[in-house]
């Protein structure tokens, strides 16, 4: 199990004939992703690593039945590429490109949302579900199939954390980089919600950094909605205020968005923050063993399933499920398939 992408994901590469596009299309294919095509206007009919190239997204989607695209086109053309993807019916757009004006993204975001699609990024490494699919640029060599969900605003820092998890024997369900820009399509709480609903995910690692207040919002969300253990890491404790630390979104402005505030917010809701990325596995293991008894309670009872069906509002559903499961702790494990597939269809 995984979130957002799996074996069935059919990927189109926008900008496939470019330097980055062709390299990563090949890498994704080699990893086992189902890369069904690429798009570069004017290069239709050609092939990149045996992947067919189309002139337009419309044509590519109609001929391949793709549901996902990954964007490598240069920043001046990226926004157009995202619009083109969602207009062609793509439901998941992963935007790797860095350097897109924030003002453009403010207009793109509501459009993508209105089309019922999801945008991940921009300025992100994409995502990988080990042994299932990789969409983006994360190195396939560092991941391992398992039960930890990883969500991060960073790239290489995420690799560092994933590698530490893998070495410690903690495999992953999905690792997702949501991007370092100010305006991003998918934020922490979208991923936390998906991980909570994913049966295979038993724990979550969340990697944040200075700037904005997404980590604080995530902390509140975790407190209210997450039954699974979460460990965090926050980068930028030594970052000076007012300076953009590489990522457009990593800036302490007007004295807010500091690492200290974020760490305090997370600690307040019981989320431990590791002192180093390499210490994440140890902190996670400790938390998981503590939550051992509680973890048995996360298995949903049939009664809870009925309640979930009856309730229409998501939040209400969750509260009910939680209460029932707490009571039903340590009981026999029921089949959970139905609940899961239902949630995924939402």
């Amino acid at each position: 199990m995984s979130i957002f992408i799996n074996k069935k994901t059919k990927v189109l590469v926008q900008g496939i004939t470019g330097r980055d596009g062709s390299f990563h299309a090949t890498q994704m294919k080699d990893y086992g992703s189902n890369v069904v095509g690429g798009v570069t206007p004017g290069k239709g009919g050609s092939k990149v690593a045996d992947i067919p190239v189309f002139n337009t997204m419309e044509e590519a989607v109609s001929k391949t039945g793709a549901n996902t695209s990954v964007v490598y086109v240069p920043p001046a053309f990226t926004v157009d590429a995202i619009y083109e993807a969602v207009d062609a019916g793509i439901k998941l757009v992963v935007c790797i490109t860095e350097g897109i004006p924030a003002n453009d993204m403010m207009k793109v975001y509501p459009y993508v949302k209105a089309k019922g699609a999801r945008l991940i990024g921009p300025n992100c490494p994409g995502l990988i579900s080990p042994d299932e699919s990789k969409v983006g640029i994360m190195p396939g060599t560092i991941v391992k199939k398992g039960h930890v969900g990883v969500v991060s605003r960073s790239g290489t820092l995420t690799y560092e954390a994933i590698w530490a998890l893998t070495q410690a024997g903690l495999g992953q369900t999905t690792c997702i980089g949501i991007g370092g820009d100010q305006v991003i399509g998918t934020n922490f709480i979208d991923c936390l919600e998906a991980f909570e609903n994913d049966q295979a995910t038993k724990a979550v690692v969340m990697i944040g950094e200075i700037g904005g207040s997404d980590e604080e919002i995530a902390a509140e969300y975790i407190k209210k909605n997450l039954s699974k253990p979460v460990v965090a890491f926050i980068a930028g404790q030594t970052a000076p205020p007012g300076k953009r630390m590489g990522h457009a979104g990593a800036i302490i402005s007007g004295g807010s968005g500091t690492a200290a505030e974020k760490i305090a917010a997370l600690n307040k809701v019981g989320v431990p923050v590791a002192g180093s990325p390499t210490e994440i596995p140890a902190v996670l293991k400790e938390l998981m063993s503590k939550a051992g008894k509680k973890a048995a309670g996360t298995v949903k009872k049939p009664a809870a399933k009925k309640a979930a069906k009856a309730a229409t509002k998501k939040t209400a559903t969750k509260a009910k499920v939680k209460k029932t499961t707490a009571k039903a702790a340590a009981k026999k494990k029921p089949s959970t398939k139905k609940t899961t597939s239902k949630r995924k269809n939402k």
């Binding site: 991060s152 605003r153 960073s154 790239g155 290489t156 820092l157 995420t158 560092e160 370092g180 990697i207 950094e209 200075i210 890491f233 980068a235 930028g236 404790q237 030594t238 970052a239 300076k243 630390m245 590489g246 990522h247 990593a250 690492a259 002192g275 180093s276 990325p277």
Partner: peptide, 27 residues
């Protein structure tokens, strides 16, 4: 000297944590 902004920040933080002072951020 680090590759990636997040890792660069995390590296600086560790310099401080282990008793040094970072001289710069460099990605």
């Amino acid at each position: 000297i680090v590759n990636g902004a997040g890792l660069a920040m995390a590296t600086m933080d560790l310099v401080k944590r282990y008793g040094g002072e970072p001289a710069n951020f460099l990605d």
